[in-house]
Amino acid sequence: MAAVAAVKPYEFEAADRLENFHGNQLLYIGWDQHLMFCAPFCFPLPPAMPFRAFVEQVLPGAFGYHPEFKQIDWSKAEWLASGQPFKPDWDKSLTDNGLAHKAVLRLRTPGLTGIKGSAT
């Protein structure tokens, strides 16, 4: 990576470093083929939160408006973390699942293709 051309050293702390979030870390999640939600979501979550709590307590508030959300068969759901296949342990924490600050997840629900199959 190149350096910024500047009149003197040009280095700063990242605006979004972990310690700025009062004990939480950021986790992003998008639901593939469900673009009714225009973009993936961003959550500040305790690193110790079990993955199960994330799915069962956090996601409904975010994705619940979609009629297909109730139809998700979670046993068949597929996950990607940073684009790579990811097998979460539902009873382990975010940290123990290897999800660090600003990790990004993609949820895939085969068979659910959005409103009228339009990826909405």
């Binding site: 990576m1 990242a14 979004d16 470093r17 998008g30 593939d32 083929q33 673009l35 973009a39 993936p40 940073s82 684009g83 660090a100 600050h101 600003k102 990790a103 990004v104 993609r106 990826a119």
Partner: peptide, 13 residues
């Protein structure tokens, strides 16, 4: 398909 790209800089995504 949403377009995702990422970089890691000084240990942060």
């Amino acid at each position: 398909q949403t377009c995702y790209r990422e970089s890691t800089h000084k240990g942060m995504k």
